[in-house]
Design a binder for these strands. Structure first.
Lengths: 333, 333
DNA sequence: TTGTAAGCGTTATCAT
DNA sequence: ATGATAACGCTTACAA
């Protein structure tokens, strides 16, 4: 049994192919009677339209492309869930691509997605500093694009980001008002603008409290061993009261170091971190976190994208700033 | 500037469309000279083939579909990473779909994927008991299929699963040989065959040690509150020496209960669990785990799938059994 | 309300 | 080595 096509249906029903097509697309020009016959046969024979033929003809794919830096990262999977939900609601399909934090892979994915396969792109960039050529390419091809979370700034592109500056400012201010003045900030990779903003929020809070000289910033990377060494050095040399981690990975490192050195959190040192991991509350002690609503971010970004798709790009650029949730748990005292 | 097509290239180069097509596909019939000219222009004009036209004509999409029950589950994201890697190596694209543990959604996804959009399907089923009609549909349409991790058994389909019976048997035997006889098994949802196998491994180990009467099985669900109640009841009424959790969620529940009751793990009760979460070693105390190599499972399943795709289905069915890694940490004493 | 013809951008077949 | 023609399955414009 070969594939059922419109032609087959048309032959059986003794109708023309366009009539069958229109009937299945519920066109107003077709009589109810015919529609009924067509639909029944289509159902009986399990007809499925060939998506390639339709896309080729209509020059639309009913698919959107989601590009994330990492697929096994809880934050991004939460985003994906939100994106998926909205796509489903619009009857769109989703192609998920991971750049694995590689700008080259990211560029090649984008190159690949700009061949017409998708009607729109959602992008969160790889962390390494990188070119924006591939992004220009999307714009040039007039493919709707929305950036989220990790964005290249100053581009004429809609974006959804979180209030990193504000949340870091708020946390730092709170810690200062609690009487802690020796707050160390663990910075992670400097290419990400949102981590830069967190750092700036921290610095601004110190400045606003006349404590700029208390600035204590440690630059860390994804080299775990090296991080451990640096965190130890920080603790020995500076004896910070609080360690403020710009990403959750560094909180784990800090916990490991404290355990090794026999330090108790929060008695000997307090810890607070940017983190979206659900296990934060199960750590020992439960970790205070600043988390973003990833699901909401996915939803919002996708909605912006569909807005563009529906308007065929004839709409203004929107930059959405989402709030963060600060959860104080035992680790920060 | 409109889209570059073969026709455009052909016009500029004063060649026919098929010649340009063949040149770009590196056909042996085309002179090096021509190939060079074509390739250069294509590159200069940034030509990208229209994938829909090619797929329509070739009746192949160079895409495979991955269906997972949950996208924000570390285990499945690890699998996805493995799948992605192999797909990339073969120059294939990947569409990731999540059934969100819903058999209906799963069926609709499969229905949707069987319209020719993908050249092969990788499937891990939703946990609820469900029909297999949609799976038959895949087979009927002769679309290559490989099941992984959560499989519908007794189907003529290649599959990659893990040795759940054996690992549960081994762990239980080890616990018994350590002198613990009161081992409680926390079962999670009974529709999943792999959890059934874990249970059976546990039971068989008891039986082989003549301890069938020591059987202590608690049925739990995804209702966290209820689970907490049941775990408390278990501890009060049966005072188990070890709690063996069939999934990691139940380990978290057990930890919560112990904390609430002021019980110390592993002194008051030991815990071991099936879990792939990377935070297991950061829990308090570090959790003993039985983990599967998810990445490897993804790779293996995808390789089986490509084997089928290349052979156009003319190949025998393979069932692959992967080993598990048992890591004893502090929680089990 | 239905049918005819043309076209979307490729690739396959058959000529030359 | 290259070209002419048809075909993949669908939708749209126009005709009837």
């Amino acid at each position: 049994m070969e594939n059922i096509t419109l032609k087959k249906l048309a032959e059986i029903l003794e109708l023309s192919v366009p009539t069958v097509s229109r009937a299945l697309n519920d066109s107003y020009e077709i009589s109810e009677e015919t529609k009924k016959r067509v639909r029944e046969l289509a159902k009986a024979l399990n007809y499925q339209p060939n998506p390639f033929a339709a896309s080729l003809r209509k020059n639309k794919s009913k698919t959107i492309g989601l590009v994330v830096p990492e697929i096994s990262n809880y934050f991004f999977t939460q985003i994906t869930t939100g994106v998926e939900k909205v796509c489903n609601e619009h009857g769109y399909h989703l192609i998920i691509c991971s750049s694995n934090e590689s700008p080259e892979k990211e560029a090649s994915i984008i190159y690949n997605l700009t061949n017409g396969k998708v009607d729109g792109i959602l992008l969160s960039t790889a962390s390494e500093a990188h070119q924006t050529e591939h992004i220009s390419r999307i714009l040039q091809k007039k493919i709707p694009l929305v950036q989220f979370d990790r964005v290249v700034e100053d581009l004429p592109v809609s974006a959804v980001i979180s209030n990193d500056f504000e949340s870091a400012y708020d946390v730092t201010t709170k810690l200062l008002s609690d009487g802690h003045t020796k707050i160390a900030f663990l910075k992670y990779r400097n290419e990400l603008t949102n981590i830069e903003k967190r750092l700036n929020g921290y610095l601004k809070a110190l400045e606003d409290n006349g404590l700029t000289d208390k600035k204590l910033v440690v630059e860390l990377t994804n080299n775990e061993e090296n991080n451990i060494t640096e965190i130890k050095r920080l603790i020995f040399e500076k004896k910070p009261e609080v360690i403020f981690c710009s990403v959750s990975l560094l909180a784990i490192g800090t916990y490991d170091v404290c355990k090794e050195l026999g330090l108790t959190i929060p008695d000997d040192v307090k810890v607070i971190a940017y983190s979206n991991t659900p296990t934060a509350r199960h750590l020992n002690p439960p970790l205070s976190t600043i988390s973003k609503s990833a699901f909401e971010m996915g939803v919002k970004a996708t909605e912006l994208l569909f807005y563009q798709i529906k308007r065929k790009g004839e709409c203004e650029i929107e930059k959405v700033l989402l709030g963060s949730k600060i959860t104080y748990r035992k680790s920060s005292g």
